[in-house]
């Protein structure tokens, strides 16, 4: 946990780097949509974790899909990280949250790194690279800087690259962001909750784990074009859910001796035990005022966890506990019970 002033500073730094104030909206992942669903744990889930939503009884779930960019403009077709925040509703009225993005790892290890990254990766004027320089890049067998999207005059790309060139731990995350593309649907992307959590099994054994969602329909990106469609993801999801429910598998990887438990810049290899924990079915998209509640006023926190799941010592995860609350207060987001007695 970071102290309250640091939590405030973390959020402020993000606000300061926005193209325009967002008012009482989220400073990142500003544009999003709330969806209802159900989660059914697999038959083995309960043997790894005693948390209520893994006991096999179907659980109501609130999901918010979002674009990663901060700002009120919607650019669905831009290459961008997408978010999938999930709340499992527990019987006593509390919830257990799982916040994931399409990026498989984060690009800073701790709060200090984050402030330094924010110093380096500031919004800068972003212009098309001159064709002569591009030819020079090609001759060096380099990737030239991407072209700006129509209307895109500022970006943090150059600063992020500068940061990556100085910090090897950040290179994977920043490189992957560059390749991430735009999903054909929110229901056709994989989402990773990059941090390590500890889950407790019925026999008391605690295991370090990482969670991710995989779309049953498969991962699919749209073909990149110079002038991408600005708005399609919400409608696509509405249409999709009218035809049939969309599903995600919740996968859980178990860490072993020697794995990084508190560094979310380092993904675990595919050689670790992988457990299918259950299936999430997206059922409907609330309309009107219900959508405002489900998409906007709802507030998540990666450290809001059912008994049986605990956060690791990952400093970024710990910082998010406070920062998400600060951000929620700043935008007047709906507080959500941390405990059944709401104390």
């Amino acid at each position: 946990m970071v102290d309250p002033p640091t939590a405030k500073r973390l959020v402020q730094v993000i606000h300061d780097n926005l193209p325009a104030p967002v008012g009482e909206r989220r400073p990142v992942h500003t544009i999003g949509i709330g969806v209802n669903g159900r989660f059914v744990a697999s038959e083995v889930a309960r043997s790894y974790c005693i948390a209520e939503h893994f006991d096999g009884e179907p659980v109501d779930v609130s999901i918010r899909f979002s674009n990663g960019l901060g700002g009120l403009e919607q650019h669905d077709g831009w290459s961008d990280v997408r978010g999938m925040a999930v709340r499992f509703h527990l019987k006593n009225g509390t919830g257990s949250d799982l916040i994931a993005t399409t990026l498989g790892e984060f690009f800073v290890r701790n709060v200090d790194d984050f402030f330094k990254f924010s110093d380096t990766a500031k919004r800068e004027p972003f212009r098309r690279r001159h064709w002569l320089l591009k030819i020079l890049d090609f001759l060096q067998l380099k990737i030239p800087q991407r072209n700006p999207y129509p209307g895109e005059t500022q970006a943090i790309d150059a600063g992020a690259l500068r940061y990556a060139n100085q910090h090897r731990f950040s290179q994977l995350g920043i490189f992957q962001v560059g390749l991430i593309g735009a999903p054909a649907s929110y229901a056709r992307a994989s989402y990773h909750a990059v941090h390590t959590f500890w889950v407790t099994a019925p026999d008391g054994v605690r295991r370090p784990v990482r969670f991710y969602w995989q779309p049953v329909a498969g991962v699919r990106n749209i073909k990149p074009t110079p002038e991408p469609c600005e708005k399609y993801l919400f409608d696509e999801l509405k249409k999709r859910l009218k035809r049939w429910p969309a599903r995600f598998m919740l996968m859980m990887t178990i860490g072993e001796e020697g794995d990084t438990l508190d560094d979310c810049t380092k993904p675990w290899p595919g050689t670790r035990l992988r457990i299918a924990m259950g299936t999430l079915t997206l059922t409907e998209i609330p309309e009107g005022e219900d959508q405002a509640t489900a998409g906007e006023r709802i507030s998540f926190n990666p450290c809001r966890l059912a008994p049986g799941i605990e956060p690791s010592n990952d400093p970024i995860l710990k910082a998010r506990l406070g920062a998400y609350e600060v951000s929620r207060e700043m935008r007047g987001g709906c507080p959500f019970k941390w405990r059944a007695d709401n104390a």
């Binding site: 060096q140 380099k142 990737i143 030239p144 060139n165 100085q166 910090h167 090897r168 731990f169």
Partner: peptide
């Protein structure tokens, strides 16, 4: 080394 380094990530294709 981890950091600070002086890499050029755009050289990855080469």
């Amino acid at each position: 080394a981890v950091a600070p380094v002086n890499d050029d990530l755009t050289l990855l294709p080469r």
